[in-house]
């Protein structure tokens, strides 16, 4: 691989100051970055290892009753945390739907949010890719893509955010707390954190040089029924074709509040407030859930060309169906039904 320097950061200040230089990357669990370095896709001149910084691996209550998750908390620890399991079960389920046990033991909270898309054209140096090499083109459009985005894309890029954890954090209104070199850190919602690709898909977030995620903050527990539904090409250890995180409060047959976020279909965890408002105060029905899906997918465009089948566009229909299935599942669980999911059943 390309030669690179390695710096083990003492503290946040050291980390952010060192990482502000060009060609420097933070590294923690290294489950994604090092893979990309082996492929030659990422060639940082220096790695700043933040895993030895004290205090970033804790899960703490916030003053308002929410939860503050340190950036170095591993996926395994976060999914297994008793408070998370009780108060934010959609987060546990989403994490456990992703990767494998070994990977979750290494992968960290901040790193998971910043992981790169798994677009095979991004990973193949022989292929044009605007995310890897701005202006070179997007070969994924016209290829047999299954892991592509259908919302928030541009002519320059159709890569989807591949994570599961972020989708649950999105539905929970999580915010990231950052540290910056030479100035105060800031708080960003996930919608603020991620940029849509536009003409510069290589710039994936608004994070500045040297700016580091130090924690993810969850607001107080939303209550209600939590569902994470992930549809993929095998039962485990595959990225989502479509995933859906749902938090639904049903009382006396009426939806008091409903939230829904989509994964695997957009460059970031995808929410639409209009879709959620449409549910408020309504009784669950096929027509209602169709309306929710229609609002969420109104702007969807499928730019893949599935080679053999010549039938692009399965993803919009699959997203619609997954939304309905997840919402019904939440209704059934609220009513005390079994409503087992594929992931859990497997």
């Amino acid at each position: 691989m390309n030669p690179f320097a390695y710096h083990r950061a003492r503290d946040e200040q050291d980390a952010t100051a060192t990482a502000a230089d060009d060609g420097t990357s933070f590294v923690a669990g290294a489950t994604n970055l090092v893979d990309l370095m082996k492929l030659g896709v990422k060639t940082p001149g220096r790695l700043v290892d933040i895993t030895r910084i004290e205090g970033l691996d804790r899960i703490e209550r916030t003053d308002d009753g929410g939860l503050r998750i340190g950036t170095l908390v591993t996926n395994s620890d976060l999914a297994a945390d008793p408070v998370v399991r009780r108060d934010y079960p959609v987060l546990s389920r989403a994490i456990l739907a992703g990767a494998s046990g070994q990977l979750r033991n290494k992968a960290t909270t901040g790193g998971n949010l910043l992981q790169h898309p798994r677009c095979p054209y991004f990973q193949d140096l022989a292929m044009p890719c605007n995310m890897r090499e701005p202006g070179s083109g997007c070969a994924a459009q016209g290829g047999p893509m299954r892991l592509h985005a259908i919302l928030g894309t541009s002519a320059a890029c159709i890569a989807a955010h591949p994570g599961d954890m972020g989708v649950a954090m999105g539905v929970l209104d999580a915010a990231v707390e950052t540290a910056r070199p030479g100035q105060e850190g800031r708080s960003l919602s996930l919608e603020e954190l991620y940029r849509l690709p536009g003409e510069r898909p290589d710039i994936r977030t608004v994070l500045e040089p040297g700016e580091m995620i130090r924690a993810v903050v969850l607001p107080p527990p939303p209550g209600g029924t939590h569902v994470y539904r992930k549809v993929r090409d095998r039962a485990s250890y595959a990225f989502a074709l479509v995933s859906t995180a749902v938090v639904l409060r049903l009382e006396d047959g009426y939806i008091q509040a409903g939230r829904i976020a989509l994964g695997g279909v957009a460059p970031r965890p995808w929410r639409n407030p209009h879709a959620e408002e449409a549910m408020t105060g309504e009784p669950p029905s096929e027509a209602l859930f169709d309306r929710v899906a229609n609002i969420l997918l109104a702007e969807a465009v499928d730019r893949s060309a599935l080679g053999r089948d010549g039938a692009p566009g399965f993803k919009i229909d699959l997203a619609r169906r997954t939304i309905r299935a997840a919402l019904w599942q939440a209704v059934e669980r609220s009513e005390g039904g079994a409503g087992k999911t594929a992931g859990e059943a497997a």
């Binding site: 095979p120 047999p144 095998r234 039962a235 485990s236 250890y237 595959a238 080679g307």
Partner: peptide, 25 residues
């Protein structure tokens, strides 16, 4: 195996992209 229709290249060249059954399957 997924081939790109434009140059025949193999698009899914690893076990993340080529889905052999895992235990859960």
């Amino acid at each position: 195996l997924e081939h790109d229709p434009r140059d025949g290249h193999l698009v899914n060249r690893d076990f993340a992209g080529y889905h052999i059954p895992v235990n859960a399957d």
